[in-house]
């Protein structure tokens, strides 16, 4: 029975789709998330990327939820903390159809570039979007590379 289970597990693993690569953008039915890097970053210097959360369809960005970016170990960029709040200093785009609510949030993500070569920024954006009936809490991994500035 144990052998059968092991064979089945191997067979299922072989048929499993490859893990989806994490990129600078991700989307679901109710949202889009983008990690927007600066064009380049001077090695070892401070720079700023942006995290943009956009609600889709009947959803808006939940202003009460503490939107954040949790740094992934794949990052070669340095951050001031492992988990960075994104609410303060964020620009919010008002919804056209839902007065008083924001349909997009664009938050600065300060980091320090790697001492040499390309800088990798990777992490998980936590946010919430709501429609009239329900709220969703999402945790979406994103990653992007920043080229070293030549000047």
């Amino acid at each position: 029975m144990t052998l059968l289970a092991a064979i089945l597990a191997i067979a299922l693993a072989a048929d499993a789709p490859p893990t989806k690569a994490v990129g600078p953008r991700a989307e679901g039915e109710a949202y889009q998330v983008a990690l927007v890097p600066p064009p380049s970053a001077k090695p070892g210097a401070a720079a700023t990327a942006r995290v943009v959360v956009t609600a889709r369809g009947p959803y808006h960005v939940n202003r009460d939820y503490p939107t954040s970016f949790r740094v992934d170990k794949a990052s070669t960029a340095s951050f001031t903390a492992e988990k960075l709040p994104l609410g303060e200093g964020a620009e919010r785009t008002p919804c056209k159809d839902f007065p008083g609510e924001a349909c997009a949030l664009s938050a600065p993500l300060p980091f320090r570039a790697a001492a040499s070569g390309e800088t990798r920024i990777a992490g998980v954006v936590a946010f919430s979007v709501c429609n009239a009936d329900r709220c969703l809490i999402e945790k979406v991994p994103v990653a992007v590379s920043v080229a070293p500035a030549t000047k």
């Binding site: 009460d64 939820y65 954040s68 809490i137």
Partner: peptide, 8 residues
């Protein structure tokens, strides 16, 4: 902690 999980 308005994320519901004591994280923020």
């Amino acid at each position: 902690s308005p994320d519901g999980e004591r994280g923020s």
